[in-house]
Design a protein around this nucleic acid. Structure first.
Length: 459
RNA sequence: GCCCCCAUGGUGUAGCGGUUAGCACGUCAGGUUUUCAUCCUGGAAGCAGCGGUUCGAUUCCGCUUGGGGGUACCA
């Protein structure tokens, strides 16, 4: 574990999203890995907003990212630092590099660079000349940069292949690869844990560190996250942002567990790991190098597991927040075994509060079936006659009818279910009746009976 | 085009020269069951290909193929 310091609590990591959109699952995973490392070692996490792209960075996006991190319960110790707030310091470094001849101003445009390559071969990097004006380019020296990555080992980048990178626009505003290096240095960052898409950028940043005469941090590049089609995760892949995951009814703790397993695993290959266990066990040494595909099916399963481990009170509170309704405890109790996400709840038991759903196919199949109305009428009188209206008495009353008529349980249960719920899918039939209460149950059965009489003779 | 990274079933992973290649999701077949789920049991399914190195390669090396990233006065 060469990446670990002798005193892990001295580590300073950072999560540095760029606010060009909402927080992606990939970004969330990067944030989680940083957070896990820090919280497991008692180290420090710095949040920095990389907003040097003035066109795409918006306050709304910043809020979205902060909101997403908060919802995922990933906190930080310093920041948020806005990269744009460090403009003065960036200029200072820029000037010193210019003065030292380590950087120069050039009028060369992207087209010029392309033309240069067409002429000199694309394996040879562009070297500009000092025009005294224009964009600022860093002078790439001879030799090579070696990125000693904590996850991938050493990667060598020959400088000949690198263009002299533009580190500041003609107007003086700085560019990403320059700003990151300066900011990481200023913040005393010891470990940079980020997506693999930055590996190729690392030599440029290393060059900036060298120009500043500073020591670069330890880098660790995480494998990227892909969608089910193997392509880079994007909006097309359904729930791609943290907000969407929240709206789809996933629990933050389940998401943490699931995405921790994307690109990382334990030696015993455990699947269900609490956040505390994650903090304790997570380390860079078990991070894989190959990209992982985000599989919502597994998340669903895992979410269901977490859902069922919540206390009734906790789950009810979350469901009330999610649906905006109150007084849900009873419905939660009878449906918690049947749902995998918070979003599954209302479609399953909403009928209890909003009345039976309208489902003609379900009706035709059950109450519309021959003899069903007669059975339902018998169910009605049995439920009206029962002394106490609880799960046991309701159950025995209904089972008595099954016995007596010698029919399949479904012949009795399904018509009642559809009378109460409007559909063939609902929580347990006895529990549902008890939750509705005798009065409401009978009234729904009556309505079904009324509707069933003329229809059964008509059809 | 050029530079770089990656490669165990459909998916996530365990494995770190000798294993009947394990686990989880999904899937299929049963069981439990009042629907839907849950839960239980069992099955199918994998080391991308080709060369080396080695007594022996999923494991080490090279090539090919495939995927991905970078190559911006984006981040």
């Amino acid at each position: 574990m060469a990446w670990l310091m002798t005193d892990p609590s001295k580590m300073r990591l950072r999560f540095a999203p760029s606010p060009t959109g909402s927080l992606h699952i990939g970004g969330a995973r990067t944030a989680l890995f940083n957070w896990l490392l820090v919280r497991g070692a008692g180290a420090t996490l710095v949040l920095r907003i990389e907003d040097t792209d003035r066109d795409r960075s918006t306050p709304e996006n910043v809020d979205q990212i902060l909101d997403a991190l908060k919802w995922l319960e990933l906190d930080w110790d310093e920041g948020p630092i806005f990269q744009s707030d460090n403009a003065v310091r960036h200029q200072e470094v820029l000037v010193s590099l210019l003065d030292a001849g380590l950087a120069y101003r050039s009028l060369a445009t992207a087209d010029d660079v392309r033309a240069y390559k067409d002429q000199h071969g694309s394996e040879r990097g562009f070297r500009g000349q000092d025009d005294g004006e224009g964009a600022v380019r860093l002078r790439v020296p001879e030799g090579a940069s070696i990125v000693d990555d904590a996850i991938r080992g050493e990667t060598r980048f020959e400088h000949v292949h690198l263009d002299d990178p533009v580190i500041a626009r003609a107007d003086g505003s700085v560019l990403y690869n320059f700003a990151v290096a300066v900011d990481d240095h200023d913040a005393g960052i010891t470990h940079v844990v980020r997506g693999d898409d930055h590996l190729s950028n690392t030599p440029k940043q290393l060059l900036v560190f060298a120009a500043m005469g500073a020591t670069a941090p330890i880098y660790a590049h995480l494998p990227l996250l892909h969608g089910p089609d193997g392509k880079k995760l994007s909006k097309r892949h359904g729930a791609a942002s943290v907000q969407e995951l929240r709206d789809d009814g996933y629990l933050p703790e389940a998401i943490r567990n699931y995405i921790a397993l994307l690109g990382w695993g334990t030696d015993d290959d455990e699947t269900l790991l609490s956040t505390d266990e994650l903090k304790r066990r997570f380390g860079l040494d078990h991070v894989s190098k190959s990209p992982a595909i985000f599989d919502e099916k597994k998340l669903r399963w895992m979410n269901g597991r977490y859902l069922r481990e919540l206390t009734l009170e906790d789950l009810t509170a979350r469901l009330e927040l999610f649906t905006g309704r109150t007084g849900l405890a009873g419905a939660v109790e009878i449906s918690r075994e049947k749902i995998q996400t918070l979003a599954d709840f209302w479609p399953l038991v909403g009928f209890v509060f909003d009345g039976p759903a309208e489902d003609q196919a379900a009706w035709d199949k059950t109450i519309g079936a021959p003899g069903a109305v007669e059975i339902l009428a018998e169910v009605r009188s049995a439920l009206a006659a029962v002394a106490e209206f609880d799960v046991d008495t309701v159950q025995s009353a209904l089972r008595a009818i099954v016995e007596e008529r010698g029919v399949k349980p479904n012949a009795v249960f399904q018509p009642l279910r559809v009378a109460m719920a409007g559909t063939t899918i609902s929580p347990g039939i006895f529990e549902t009746a008890v939750l509705l209460g005798r009065e409401e149950t009978l009234s729904r059965v009556d309505r079904a009976l009324e509707r069933g009489e003329p229809q059964s003779s008509a059809s």
